[in-house]
Design a protein around this nucleic acid. Structure first.
Lengths: 352, 352
DNA sequence: CTAGAGTGTGGAACCGCTCCCAATGAAGGA
DNA sequence: TCCTTCATTGGGAGCGGTTCCACACTCTAG
């Protein structure tokens, strides 16, 4: 119960208590092998007895490193929380970072001045490097930080893709795979509800949709493409438009599960059955997807893996600052559920 | 596009470029008034031309402060995100902290070893103080940190309430108010679904429920009290028990909105109409509450205000470390919706 | 028995910044 | 005109670590 050390303990005091020099004490605490077993034991004992914790600022100043990295999320806080993407990403990051005893500092700039603050924070070497996610396209921050020589990894596809380290999910392949799945299930008139056009992931998923059709020799039809905005209502609205433009459609690929909820609602209201009349595949494999009515097929992204890969890339960049930028592309997996069951059992008029 | 300063700029270089000493340059950058206008301008110009940003470690070492505080959240990451409590809290904290140019570092220890890591992190003076929320009761961390002289503010009611600064919501009054509202609506047999017993907030809400009954002269009845566990399913289960034990109940006060969802389901399955047969009031005023069927009455907590107050308290503690612990109690507001409409318009057998 | 090769160790020089303190010069007062 | 007072300024001592370097030993190998 002795909380004697209300005053900070310094290395000097530990060294003194252990009867060695500051240098030797430091060696023990940084796991330098060049210390005799006796001295080592003495220092360790003294340190634990005094409750010594190395002062961060002192160490950082001496080593030039801070053992922390920033996760910069460009997204309204409300969206940040509530989106299952982030806990998964953070778990992945944590897997790698905690094993190296590095701290993760979460920064969520909301305004332009916040963004400046982030730049100053990172430039001040508060952290050894930065992870940037959901970066608005053409945002100046990566360039600014890079010009200060700060190690950087971007999650998603940056505007100037080869200037920066980045980890992306293969959205093109994921979307193409979803379309192939629909085609395999006997669908022929496949529409899509896209994401916002300014979001790279949305662009890629649209491209994947188109490639999927082309690969199967199906015609492209612009009237089968309708823009959503990654919201539920946007999805519903887009679906209603599609039903007006192409009533005969028999499948929809939706660029996010949240929009897919709206799509399902719109289909239900229009009296179309899912999957009997229209098959639906979403994207993200949101936890709620499996619980929807009907359970929603969805493209699952390896978010944890993305986090791990981002952390690895960043640590590499911190240790070898001159390495050229690298790019990692991760593959998706299709979770097929009832919403995209094959037309099956009603093959050309077979009697029941 | 000269990114000349890939190498860090130091104060020394700024001073040199401005033709003054390091001391004077430092004064300019710390807004010390004792600098001539000329020197000030020269330094400012040099600093911005060189893209100077003060090195954090250097400054922290010299001042003994880091201009950052930690928010320590003891909750599984998955719960952290997804719970609307946190974005609201963080917004409140941000209001106060950014105005003082302080950074918020989010730490979410999941395991005991994480918790140790947090202790080391904070003890290393990485941050000037710590904000602790959803702290398990009797957790050793606050005591440990306090004994190291680290400024602390706890959100919620800590086990040893007067040892620590804390900001709490008046859960007792909030719950009592909800019960009073039910009574005013003509209800007489009021049950409650409580939270987990080891959570102070849950205990307080139960106490408020009891006080509410007592204040109105209604009898206490233990069979009207059933423990939930803050989950939806737990709420449903508790409600089913209550219906068995006291079929004649005409109102339920539920200690969280999430549990209230389960309660509504259970009531629906049992064929009880809400609010005609049973009135329901929840707690937290979750954003979804207004969207439920029927819209759920709920006790709204001033979370943003709690964040602001916590930040203020912590900043005070950082600046005056010897001030005795303070306690702030915030009041709730009842959002009355249809789920607790008065029995009204069916007075004793009036014909339809 | 001695030169040479390791080991451990301590002294001291930083790392980048703040701030105390003494020094300077100009301005004001006697 | 000389002494104070006041506003600026620079020198230099830390802040708490890490790490280079030289030194003192001990232990082979020649």
């Amino acid at each position: 119960m002795k909380d004697l050390h209300v005053t900070k303990v310094t290395l000097q005091e530990v060294a003194q208590a252990a009867g060695v020099s500051r240098a030797t004490a430091s060696r023990v605490l940084t796991s330098d092998p060049r210390v005799s077993p006796g001295a080592r034991r003495a220092v360790e004992r003294a340190a634990s007895k005094l409750g010594y914790v190395p002062n961060h600022a002192g160490r950082a100043l001496a080593t030039g490193r801070s053992d922390a990295v920033a996760l910069v999320v460009f997204e309204p806080t409300t969206l940040l929380f509530g989106d299952p993407f982030f806990p998964r990403l953070i778990r992945g990051l944590g897997d790698v970072l905690t094993s190296r005893d590095m701290q993760l500092v979460l920064l969520a700039p909301q305004t332009a001045s916040d963004s400046d603050r982030v730049e100053r924070y990172v430039a001040a070497r508060h952290v050894d490097g930065a992870l940037l996610v959901s970066l608005p396209s053409a945002h100046p921050l990566p360039g600014r930080l890079a010009s200060r020589g700060i190690p950087l990894v971007i999650g998603g596809r940056p505007t100037e893709a080869d200037r920066f380290n980045h980890v992306d999910v293969d959205n093109v392949a994921g979307a193409a795979r979803a379309v192939a799945h629909l085609i395999a299930g006997g669908r022929r008139t496949i529409a899509t509800v896209t994401g916002r056009e300014d979001v790279p992931a949305g662009q890629d998923r649209l491209r994947g949709y188109q490639e999927g059709l082309t690969a199967a020799g199906l015609p492209a039809d612009d009237a089968l493409i309708e823009a959503g905005d990654f919201t539920r209502d946007g999805g519903a609205r887009a679906m209603r438009f599609l039903l007006v433009k192409r009533p005969q459609l028999d499948a929809v690929f939706v660029a996010s599960d949240l929009m897919a909820v709206g799509v399902l609602e719109a289909l239900h209201q229009a009296g179309r059955r899912v999957p009997e009349d229209v098959a639906v595949v979403g994207y993200d494999d949101d936890p709620m997807a499996a619980g929807l009515q009907p359970p929603l097929s969805s493209v699952r992204q390896p978010i944890e893996e993305m986090g791990r890969e981002m952390a690895r890339l960043l640590l590499d960049a911190v240790h070898s600052p001159d390495r050229p930028p690298r790019k990692v592309l991760l593959t998706t997996r299709l979770e097929a559920r009832f919403s995209s069951a094959p037309v099956a059992s009603k093959p050309t008029g077979e009697a029941v």
